[in-house]
Design a protein around this nucleic acid. Structure first.
Length: 270
DNA sequence: CATCAGGCGAGAC
DNA sequence: GTCTCGCCTGAT
């Protein structure tokens, strides 16, 4: 178990920002994360974060997952001081990070996310994991489920998926799982593509449109130019940036700012 | 009882 | 290319 101090790391805000549906609060300042075939608990008091894992596991798995190489202070200080809305958003979201999550998991999660709310998205994802994921048990006896593989989901009947309360997204998940399991869309290749190519390739998947593809690019491929525009972002851009959002000022990381704006708006920021 | 939640696909034009 | 419409389900 290792403890670090970092002003730009808030498990709570990462959890609330809705990019990861398998990070959940399990107690006072205590969180459980299931990702990349691992389970880990995290506790945080102020800027002190404790990862309940070995140093080796942290270095091998979580350091990259939590994007520890990126200097979020630098990003925040680069915000135009005259852009008072964006300044308020980044201050409110201090501690948010863009995770490096699993590509397949993000594809399925964000197909589920359309016309859906975070609470129900979590429930749907959990159900899929319990029904189709591998069950595992940690050294201290905590059981958890891996995210199901494309093959596992592809072999499920659409009606079985429907009974996971996926609604009309059941067919999308089924068709997409088949495409990936059969290699019609090669995810290993997608991982090595540039942003535009990856986005276009992902949109070949059923249920993946512009917005979902951008979420996948941002949260799995760490393509920080990707700027997912959902209904919240559309409204904020129309209200706050009638002349257009200044993408040229934030080339290479506008997507990270999108996440601050999304989180700020979600919490009722004005 | 309506409406809506981090859209998308299909069909019309 | 752009527009419209219908869509599962649960929360409010």
């Amino acid at each position: 178990m290792i403890t670090i101090q970092n002003d730009h790391f808030s498990v709570k805000k990462i959890c609330e920002s809705g990019q990861c549906f398998r990070l959940r609060e399990i107690g006072e300042e205590r969180y459980a994360l299931t990702a990349l075939g691992h389970y880990m608990e995290i506790t945080q008091a102020g800027n002190k974060i404790t990862f309940h894992c070995s140093q080796e596991e942290f270095d091998a798995v979580w350091s990259r997952y939590f994007d520890m190489e990126t200097d979020y202070g630098k990003i925040i200080s680069s915000v135009d001081s005259e852009d008072t809305y964006l300044c308020r958003a980044v201050v409110d979201g201090l501690g948010i990070r863009i995770l490096h999550q699993d590509l397949w998991e993000m594809i399925v999660s964000f197909i589920i996310s359309q016309q859906n709310n975070i609470k129900r998205i979590r429930k749907c994802v959990d159900t899929l994991c319990v029904r189709y994921g591998e069950k595992r048990i940690t050294k201290d006896g905590t059981s958890y489920y891996d995210f199901p593989t494309a093959e596992a989901l592809a072999s499920a009947a659409v009606d079985d998926l429907r009974s996971c309360n996926l609604g009309y997204r059941s067919r999308y998940i089924h068709d997409t799982s088949v495409s990936v399991a059969h290699g019609t869309v090669n995810l290993e290749a997608v991982k090595h593509m540039e942003y535009e190519a990856a986005r276009a390739e992902l949109m070949k998947l059923c249920g993946v449109g512009v917005k979902v593809a951008d979420c996948i690019c941002l949260f799995a491929l760490h393509q920080t130019d990707a700027f997912p525009k959902d209904t919240h972002i559309h409204r904020v851009l129309a209200e706050r940036y009638p002349e257009g959002f200044p993408f040229e000022k934030y080339k290479g990381y506008a997507g990270i700012l999108q996440q601050y704006i999304f989180y700020y708006d979600l919490r009722g920021g004005v």
